[in-house]
Design a protein around this nucleic acid. Structure first.
Length: 617
RNA sequence: GGUCUCGUAGCUCAGCUGGAUAGAGCAACUGCCUUCUAAGCAGUAGGUCUUUGGUUCGAAUCCAAACGGGAUCACCA
């Protein structure tokens, strides 16, 4: 049942009858605040074809709509080129009746397509922070949205478990760790390993080059500067990098990496041990925010992939070899540059590995689509990656998408691990739960007095984590967003506790209805709707199209906006319309039915965001 | 420097496939709990939609330029 389509058809029919005009498809809008109606039709585009001023067109169409035999229009009004129509209440009541008997009204047919959503993808040298949370919540929510519209979704995590970063932690642990374990120190494994990464950075800073070597290093840098960019910042960065490579500690890390690549048993054992600690820590974090993956890839298994694709690309003449033997992709037709895919010594680069991994994913799961949830600093990389895969004629190439998102900033600017300004994920989650508890104790304990302690803890957790997820999903992904640790994340207004609160209200009503043995699941006898009722039903109705839009555009933020709208519509209904003390029994039953449906959709929409809905709060 | 991206109320954000009087929340102010959950509801106040030009009957929205933030342009990942 598609109400918009009904109205559109009626309008098209009206044009045919009134003006003998076949009009092409158009979109309906919502009336602005202060204008009566449920839908708005714009008549501006038809002034020429009808040879009438916009007002006149509106009047004539409106009049026809209203007076046609099977009219679905209650009333209409015209201002300028805006024809605002109000659908008959019976349309909305019929919809609610349908929704309450057909639980599947918002379901989608299976797409018969598999889609992989890759997200989280942490490095194993430090704990998860606020930025990761934005990534994780986006990926998780998107997975749920895509599942809801009928895709078979595979949630994948590609862990960066190898490379120089983890070797740094290993070196530091070897030198200063004294064989201690995180268990000994009662520290979460990822925090433990992270502390050695920090230790490495600290120690190696002490071992700078003597000053006489600075000058020659500097000259070398200027010679090699690829972009002739002599800004102070660039020089400093490059200088630091050059100096790093001369410190003993750095060289130790390099050796460690080489040993690892040569499969040195002792090194591999240490590497496994440290990663294991990290995974144990990550698992705790994932658990606390209710995140799970269907598949975990490890770069230690994938970093050598892709070389055969380079070979294939050469044969297909997608790639070409330079004189020095390095292999390149020419993406100038795509307005991208040339891109190295294999070094002259035959070793691979980052993108080589990603080419291989793309094939691996396809072969493992036969996916038609693949979404990468990765920060916006890698936009160029993914443009290049996708362009190459397209040139190679991969069957999945059209279904590739980079869900790019901006960084989470602090009032002081960027989060920087070196300066210790990173907001730790576990700390933040813990803080959110505590605030939830504090809020509950301040305002709502009376409602919760018969609930046991364990259940209470669960509720605090749902509220705290929910508020965090909502906060991070609310903002459009491509925008940078601000987190101010001074003011805690909202628990009021446009925030998840408000939505959860309204869900809890719906459940309180349902409980009471059952207590009073009200049989509300009968045919609805209601004829006329209050404004708040009408608006609430209309908002429920919009769930399906919102979900579809969110899936099409990979945009969980649409669901956030929607769920807030729905909660607000319910809140208004709740205060304006008495349920158990309504004027008639029909009203009571109707309002309970409406409450039940609202509750279902609130819960469902929250679920799409990975947010749980407490039965009471 | 080239490319991409963002700039909307004091603050955080919606709105951007062109349409009416640009919306929420927070913060401020005013009402409303003997009545189903006040984490609420109703209201007041708050705006040169960064600027300038263009397209159009009509621009926060599209185009161009400027200014300001950010990213990227590695044989790093």
């Amino acid at each position: 049942m598609n109400i918009e389509q009904l109205l559109k058809n009626a309008i098209k029919e009206a044009f045919k009858t009134v003006f003998q005009l076949e009009i092409s498809d158009f979109t309906l809008q919502s009336p602005n605040k202060g204008f009566e109606g449920t839908h708005t039709f714009l008549t501006f585009p038809y002034t020429k074809t009808t040879a009438q001023p916009p007002e006149k067109v509106g009047e004539m169409i409106g009049e026809h709509l209203k007076n046609s035999p099977q009219s679905i229009i209650q009333q209409y009004n015209v201002t300028k080129g805006f024809l605002n129509v109000s659908l008959k209440d019976s349309i909305w009541i019929e919809f609610l009746q349908h929704a309450s008997t057909e639980d599947t009204w918002h379901h989608f047919a299976p797409q018969n397509q598999r889609i992989m959503v890759e997200f989280s993808s942490p490095n194993t040298n430090k704990p998860l922070h606020l930025g990761h949370l934005r990534n994780i919540f986006l990926g998780d929510s998107l997975s749920k949205i895509l599942t809801a519209v009928g895709y078979e979704v595979i949630k994948a995590n590609l862990v960066n478990d190898r490379g120089i970063h983890i070797c740094k932690s290993m070196v530091a642990y070897k030198n200063y760790g004294k064989g201690e374990t995180p268990q000994d120190a009662s520290i979460k494994g990822d925090k433990w390993v992270g502390s050695y990464y920090v230790r490495f950075e600290k120690e190696f800073k002490k071992g700078n080059l003597p000053k006489d070597k600075l000058l020659s290093a500097l000259e070398k840098i200027i010679e090699q500067s690829p972009k002739n960019d002599y800004s102070l910042e660039t020089l400093q960065d490059t200088l630091k990098e050059t100096l790093q490579t001369h410190t003993p500690l750095w060289q130790e890390a390099q050796e460690m990496l080489q040993k690892w690549e040569q499969n040195d048993p002792e090194t591999v054992a240490l590497w496994k041990q440290m990663n294991q600690w990290v995974y144990e820590g990550f698992d705790k974090t994932y658990q606390s925010i209710n995140i799970a993956f269907d598949k975990t890839y490890y770069e230690s298994n994938t970093y050598l992939l892709g070389k055969d694709i380079v070979e294939e690309g050469l044969q297909k003449k997608v790639f070409f070899k330079k004189e020095d033997g390095s292999v390149w992709a020419d993406l100038t037709p795509e307005k991208l540059d040339q891109k190295l895919v294999l070094r002259k010594d035959g070793t691979s680069v980052y993108i080589t590995q990603d080419l291989g991994t793309a094939d691996l994913k396809y072969n493992d799961f036969n996916i038609q689509k693949s979404v990468y949830v990765v920060g916006d600093e890698q936009e160029y990389h993914f443009k290049v990656l996708f362009a190459i895969l397209k040139q190679l004629g991969r069957p999945y190439a059209e279904g590739l998408h980079h869900l790019s998102y901006g960084m989470v900033d602090l009032p002081s600017g960027k989060m920087k691990s070196r300066e210790g300004t990173v907001v730790d994920a576990d700390d933040l989650i813990e803080e959110m739960i505590q605030i939830a508890q504090q809020r509950t104790e301040e305002s709502g304990m009376a409602k919760l007095n018969e609930i046991d302690e364990q259940e209470l803890q669960k509720i605090y957790h749902q509220i705290g984590v929910g508020a965090l997820k909502y906060f991070l999903l609310k903002v459009e992904p491509r925008k940078r967003m601000l987190f101010n640790p001074e003011n805690s994340i909202d628990f009021e207004g446009d925030a998840s506790p408000f939505v959860q609160y309204n869900y809890a209200r719906t459940q309180a009503i349902i409980r009471k209805a059952k207590e009073l043995n009200i049989n509300y699941a009968e045919k609805i006898e209601k004829k006329q709707l209050e404004k708040a009722e009408q608006h609430l039903i209309q908002t429920i109705y919009q769930y399906k199209e919102t979900l579809e839009k969110a899936a099409q555009q990979y945009a969980p933020s649409f669901i956030v906006q929607y769920v807030y709208d729905l909660a607000r519509a319910y809140s208004r209904f709740f205060t304006e319309c008495a349920i158990f003390k309504a004027n008639t029994e029909e009203d009571t039953k109707f309002r309970i039915t409406l409450t039940e449906q609202t509750g279902k959709i609130l819960k469902r929409a929250l679920q799409l965001l990975g947010i749980e809905a407490p039965e009471r709060m």
